[in-house]
Every structure is written in C-alpha cells, then in structure tokens.
Amino acid sequence: MITRRLIPAIGATAAVAALVLTGCSGLTASAGAAGGAGGGPDLPKGDEISTTADPELTALLPEAIAEKGRLDIAVDIPFPPMAMYDETNREIGFDPELARLIGQKLDIDVSINKQAFDSVIPSLQAGKNDLIMSGMNDTPERQETLNFVDYTYGGFAILVAAGNPGGIVTQSDLCGTTVSVQKATVQGDLLRAMDCGSDPVRVTELPSDLDAQTALRAGKSDAYVADAVVAEYAAATTGDGSVFDVVRDPENPAGFSPVYSGIGILKADAELTEAIRATLQALIDEGTYQQVLERNNIGAYAVESAEVNQGAAS
C-alpha cells in the first residue's frame, strides 16, 4: 500500500454547500425517484463519470438480483463529500456516483435509498437494501455481519472552532474534552478506547454527521471527529472556510488511525460480494474509479486494487 497524504477536500459549489447546511436532512427521495424521474434507469448524467456494460460481469450477479432488475443501495445523506444533494435534489458525491457507475458496468438499474447510518446494516438484514455505500469503515466487528469491498483508505480528522481556542494539537489533547461524532461510527469507539487515565474523552453521539458539526459550531463540544475526507470538506465549505480549523498532526499526515472503508454486503451473499469486487476492479483498471474520486476531491484515498475485508489488517 502506497503512502497516502491528506489533502483538503475543496472545490464544492456554493449551491451544494448551502443545501448541505440547510434542511437536507429532511429530504427523503431516493435516486430511484430523483434519478429516474422519466421512468428510465438511474444512470450517470451531465458531467458525471460514465462507463460501458460488461456482459461477463453482469453474469456474475445472483439470480435473485438479476430477476429484481436493480440493486438497492443504502446511503446516509447528507454526508459530504461521500453523499449529498444537488440543487435538483439529485444524489451526488462519491457514493451515489460510484453506485451509478457500478450499475452501468453491470447493466442493472440502481436505487439509491436514503438510510440513517445507524440503520444501514438492519436494512440489509431486513431485505430492504442489497448494498451499503455510505463511507462505512471496514472493521473486524462489522465483518462478523458484512463483507466489505474496500474502496478508500484513510484516517479520521479533528475539527475545532476557528482559531483553535482549546489548543488541541494532537489526538491526546482530546482527553478531558467533549467531542461530537455521528452515532454508530467507528470514531466514537476509538475515542472511548483512548488511554486518558482519569480524564477520558466525553463522547457526544448525535444522529447525523451534520448534527455533530453543528454541536461544535454552537459551542456544545470542544471538537468534532469524522473521516478525514468528511472533516476536510466541512472545514473548507462551512462559512467559506471561516468556521472550523483542521487539527494537523505532523506525525499523522494521513489522518489518525487510518482504516479501509468500503461497500458493505451481507456475509451470506458471497456471490454478490464477488460480483461487486470484480466490477470495482474493472472500474479501477479502466480509470473511471479514480476519476470519480478526483471529481469529489478525495483522490488521495484511493485503493490500488479491489480487495475484500482488509479492515483486520489495517
């Protein structure tokens, strides 16, 4: 694995940033409705990255999925730059755009279904969705239930209020502070496991990532912790970059505790896991996977090949 350096996720339009910060959490449309408003499949459009179908990959799909005629995909929205809405209420960002690319390569429709992050795994278990594409970290604990086709590798970052009034410069400085995180994320577990002696991190778990950011902005937490790609995006776009600072530790240039993240599939669905792994590999080989990363300003977090369940080794 090559060394990956942390780069700011910048370049989002003001329109998208405004949508993220105002009311997006109340939207419930899925891409099956938004993307296929004309009754057709939800495919890349406009300047989104596109590909061509591969019949050999299509043949790898489980019979039940092929008969259904679509992949139902659980995505937590908004979670920029991984997933957000544009001004037309279309799902954009790395996860929705990669999902459409996978569907196009497999010659099958996709339905991008908004799902709260803490319920994405139950939605698979209930048969509501087939895949999770929501920037989910690949961990040994989650591997007890899921297979992961890993698609990014990077750490988490710490945001503080502009000017860093608390003087937080390393991860250890979080001891004794209140830190906001999104509910059911790995960051909460990592913070609670820190060796802080008698002065542990006070972890505040909130329903959405935007709620966790808002807690910091309102002074209800001393710091906010999230995947580096998400934290960098928030720092660059909130208030035109004037609201948050990123804590940059020279000893952790790729972010703190780097991990793999990927597409989650129920462990019993080995056939679907292989179909998605082979499809991602095809997208890597042809360069469209990297184009989707670059389009969403997260090119530094690429994986070199499509592998399954690397989390235990990270």
Rank of each mutant, 00 (worst) to 15 (best):
V247L: 06
A275W: 03
A282Y: 04
A270L: 08
R248A: 07
T279R: 09
K267V: 11
A268E: 13
L280T: 13
A270H: 13
I276R: 05
A275I: 11
G264L: 14
D245Y: 03
F256H: 05
L266C: 08
D240K: 07
P258T: 12
A282H: 10
F256D: 01
G255P: 00
V259P: 10
A275C: 08
A268D: 11
Q281L: 06
V243E: 04
D245R: 08
P258E: 04
G262A: 14
S261E: 13
I284S: 13
T279G: 11
A282S: 08
L266P: 06
I265W: 03
T273A: 01
F244L: 00
V247Y: 01
D245T: 10
E271F: 03
K267L: 10
A268V: 13
A282K: 02
S257W: 09
E271H: 11
T279E: 10
F244S: 05
I265K: 12
I284Q: 07
E271K: 12
I284A: 12
P250L: 12
D269F: 03
G255N: 05
V259T: 14
F244A: 02
V246R: 12
S261P: 12
E251S: 12
I276A: 07
D240I: 13
T279V: 06
Y260D: 08
A275T: 13
K267E: 13
R277N: 06
A270W: 03
N252R: 01
S257T: 08
P250D: 14
I263Y: 04
T279H: 15
G262I: 05
G262Q: 06
P258N: 10
L280V: 15
E251I: 01
F256Q: 04
V243P: 00
L280A: 09
A282W: 02
V246L: 04
E274R: 10
A270M: 10
Q281A: 11
I284R: 12
A282R: 05
R277Q: 09
T279I: 15
A278I: 03
V247R: 05
T279N: 07
D249W: 01
V247I: 08
L283R: 01
G262R: 08
Q281R: 05
Y260H: 14
E271T: 15
S257Q: 12
V247E: 00
D245E: 01
D245W: 11
G241W: 02
A268M: 09
F256G: 01
P258Q: 03
F244H: 00
P258S: 01
P253N: 03
I276K: 04
T273D: 04
A268L: 12
A270I: 02
G262Y: 04
A275H: 10
V259H: 15
R248V: 14
G262D: 09
P258L: 11
P250N: 15
G262K: 07
F244M: 07
A278Q: 11
V259Q: 09
G241M: 06
I276V: 05
D245L: 01
S257H: 15
D269P: 01
E251M: 07
V259K: 09
Y260L: 14
V246Q: 11
N252Q: 02
D249F: 00
F256M: 12
G241V: 00
R248H: 13
S242A: 13
